[in-house]
């Protein structure tokens, strides 16, 4: 999973950081640092909650890779069981 950061929309509410300071890093003024965020395996829920907390809608959750991967990886197992 990846968080797409729309920096131009960020207005420094810092709500993402309040949810997950280790995932959403802010500059000295309290605005999010530029660059998309690659989310580690165990942090997906926290990251998507942080993204959903942005009042300006500056954070977009991109699940495309995960969405294609997981069900395919799961299917054979459920199928065989």
């Amino acid at each position: 999973m990846r968080i797409i950061v729309h920096n131009a929309k960020c207005q420094g509410h810092a709500r993402c950081w309040a949810q997950a300071p280790d995932i959403f890093k802010l500059d000295d003024d309290g605005y999010i640092l530029p660059g998309d965020i690659q989310v580690a395996e165990g942090e997906q829920l926290l990251a998507s909650q942080g993204a959903r907390s942005c009042p300006e809608r500056a954070l977009e959750v991109d699940r495309t890779s995960a969405a294609r991967f997981e069900p395919a990886a799961m299917q054979p197992r459920t199928g065989e069981a």
Binding site: G30, S53, P55, E56
Partner: peptide, 18 residues
């Protein structure tokens, strides 16, 4: 997921919000 408007939106978002 309480994205309320108390501190406004856009470039004038309340500087004192924190």
């Amino acid at each position: 997921h309480n994205r309320h408007a108390a501190f406004g939106y856009g470039p004038h978002r309340c500087l004192g919000s924190h």
